[in-house]
Design a protein around this nucleic acid. Structure first.
Lengths: 155, 155
DNA sequence: CTCCATTAGTTGCATGATGAAACTATGTTG
DNA sequence: CAACATAGTTTCATCATGCAACTAATGGAG
């Protein structure tokens, strides 16, 4: 079988994330959803993608618990796609991707928008990794440990 | 033309990031590289991926300035792939992906490792978005603004 | 130096994923 | 109810992925 590899069973949490949103469109759909897009046609217009692919991605995101369908809020009989808490939880991922472009893109002048603090209109700070006690951490200050066994009956 | 869509020319910084690392393998290759993997065969063993795909991805990552080739550090005539600063700059993205799994995965018990502060051995804090002045921001506290016109070369 | 194993790829082929366009089935509007 | 909009599905050509086999250089043992 040539089967496209899936990371669903992988033990690495990064691989597991990628299994749910590691394709070309899913994160862009979520980006639109975070800005309030809810309807099929709206996604299609904003993203300019083929309708069959959009339909497949929406289904996949619903299956993964990132979106859920709901009756249309405008009273029509159509349905809408709205983010679940799990879906809204991807926000830091999108911010990290955005900031990486802002910092390292070869043609930053082509970037149209910046993310700002609504209250002050100033750019948000770079995401930073901190220890429990608040110390700023660099990649080298971190390491991986085996997940502690959740206390439960014998494994 | 059916051509697979590229986001390279897109004005959205998220799309631009995805153009460089939005496929199934690139971020996993970078993950390994951050842990010190440098040689072709090492990547291949750890990731268990097809060699042709690995070769293609390494080439793409080098083209995007994320990896660069260097003479082997062990004195042999082979070459190594090492992260550039741009490549190391993806670390927050990987952390965000990891934390999303840790928080929302349906089978967290399958996740093998946790990222900890090396000094204390305690899990790192969740990434949080803050304003310039340090206020904690939620997605709703942010908005997009057009990129300010670049100041005429002061560099 | 010679021979063989290792490393780092490339090539060929089968199959799955993607995308444009056409088609369909509802829902909505005049 | 006729015309139109919405939300898809189907069809088909093309592209990407993955496995296996092949090649071209090292590197190491004798």
């Amino acid at each position: 079988m040539v089967k496209r590899t899936s990371f669903a069973g992988d033990a690495c949490p990064i691989a597991r994330s990628l299994d749910a949103l590691g394709d070309w469109w899913s994160l862009l759909i979520i980006r639109e959803a975070l800005f309030g897009v809810r309807r099929f046609g709206e996604f299609q217009n904003k993203l300019g993608m083929a309708k069959n692919i959009l339909a497949a991605r929406l289904r996949s995101l619903v299956d993964h618990g990132i979106l859920e369908t709901a009756p249309a809020s405008d009273g029509s009989a159509y349905q809408e796609y709205v983010l679940t808490p799990k879906g809204r939880g991807t926000f830091p991922i999108l911010v990290a991707l955005r900031q990486w472009s802002e910092e390292f893109d070869d043609r930053p002048e082509e970037i149209a928008t910046i993310l700002v603090d609504r209250e002050k209109g100033r750019p948000v700070k770079k995401l930073e990794m901190r220890a429990e006690d608040g110390r700023l951490l660099s990649p080298a200050d971190t390491t991986l440990k085996p997940r502690p066994a959740p206390r439960r009956r014998s494994a």
